[in-house]
Simulated assay, not measured.
Amino acid sequence: MSQYPKAIEILDQGMDIGLDKLGNEHKIIAGLYNEYGSINKYKGQYDLALKYYHLSLDVRLKVVDNDFSVIAASYNNLGIIYKIKGDYDQAMEYYRKFMKALQETTVNDYPYKAAAYNNLGEVYRLKGDYDLALTYYQLSMNICLKALGKDHFLVAGSYNNIGLAYDEKGDYDYALEYLQQSLDIRLLIIGNEHPDVAVSYNNLGVIYVKQRNYEKGMDCYNRSLVINIKAFGEQHPDVAMTYTNIGNVFIAKKDFDKAVMFQEKALKIYINAFGDFHPLVGTVYNSTGNIYFEKEDQIKALGYYQLALISQVRDFTEYNIYINPTIEVVNSKTVLLSTLVGKAEALERLWL
């Protein structure tokens, strides 16, 4: 991660000069704010990324003189961060603004339209509407294939996302097919040490584990982990995701102590990156509850399920395991439902 401090140092110097010579309402200043946002996004500092992307958009809306392509880019960047933070409604709002801004621009917009369709697909997938997600992913992929050919990173991204949607629909053979195509393209064009390759290995690992091929799954996870730690350091959310998945392998193999260890490592990273109210935090609490459920320790299981509920339902802060929230503002309906089912089963075992 040594490149980030140097990049920020250079940006700081540029910002000092820019503000002194140009004032704070200039397109160059907007571009610098955007770069601050991008660096913080890659560092996993999403609140700071959001701050700088908003600053960039505010300046661009004042000074870009109808250059709607840069405004569209700002909307897209904000949508990405809100999606990562688990605020899917806000993400959808900015992605739709992105689409509308594209209609105002005269630049060659095929990559932007492909990105817009892809990002809408992402939000629908995360909200659990997998068929609609696949529709948007296919629209994105068709644009990319027509404009760029098969061996392009945008096409690889489309294959990856289609694979994820099939995974969540439970169609693992199709998922494996698309995810492998994504990995093959990424290895061809960006080599074997790029974070996108780590994503592909991680996603393939998920499918292999679901197919009970634990050896292949663990091999994929370890490849992903090595790449991500080298690229981002040990406290990045992508590293946490792999820890969670390694923990899931140990759950499947009934090695519960190791499973808890990896879930706890992931949880610390996620809370540091996102705070307590986030779908990924809830997912780890829920998984840890499942571990203690399998260990027949229903009291601990219920404690973790309750923490999962607190992380999913805004303004619900009740630690009493016998109280459930009223469902108004929810991070992830899928995680919430899984948690409530686990909690019900744990209570049943506790009482019987």
Rank of each mutant, 00 (worst) to 15 (best):
Y4D: 11
L22T: 05
E25L: 06
I28S: 10
A30K: 03
Y36R: 00
G37I: 03
N40D: 13
K41V: 08
Y42L: 09
D47T: 11
D47L: 10
Y53R: 01
L55V: 00
S56I: 02
S56M: 07
L57V: 07
V59F: 02
R60N: 13
D65S: 11
N66H: 11
V70I: 14
I80C: 09
G86T: 08
D87C: 04
M92K: 07
Y94S: 10
Q103R: 14
E104Q: 13
V107M: 09
D109R: 13
D109S: 15
Y117W: 13
E122T: 12
L132S: 10
L132G: 01
T135N: 13
Y136Q: 07
Q138N: 06
S140K: 08
S140I: 08
F153R: 12
L154I: 10
G157E: 05
S158L: 05
Y159G: 05
D167F: 13
Y172M: 04
L179A: 08
Q181A: 14
S182M: 09
N192Y: 00
P195G: 06
Y201P: 02
V209C: 15
Y214H: 15
M218S: 12
C220Y: 04
L225T: 04
I227R: 04
I229F: 14
I246N: 11
F250M: 05
I251F: 13
D255N: 14
D257G: 07
A259L: 00
V284S: 10
N286F: 00
N286M: 01
I291W: 13
E294M: 09
Q298I: 12
Y305W: 08
Y305M: 02
S311L: 07
T326D: 14
T334L: 08
L336V: 01
K343P: 04
A344V: 12
E348P: 02
R349P: 04
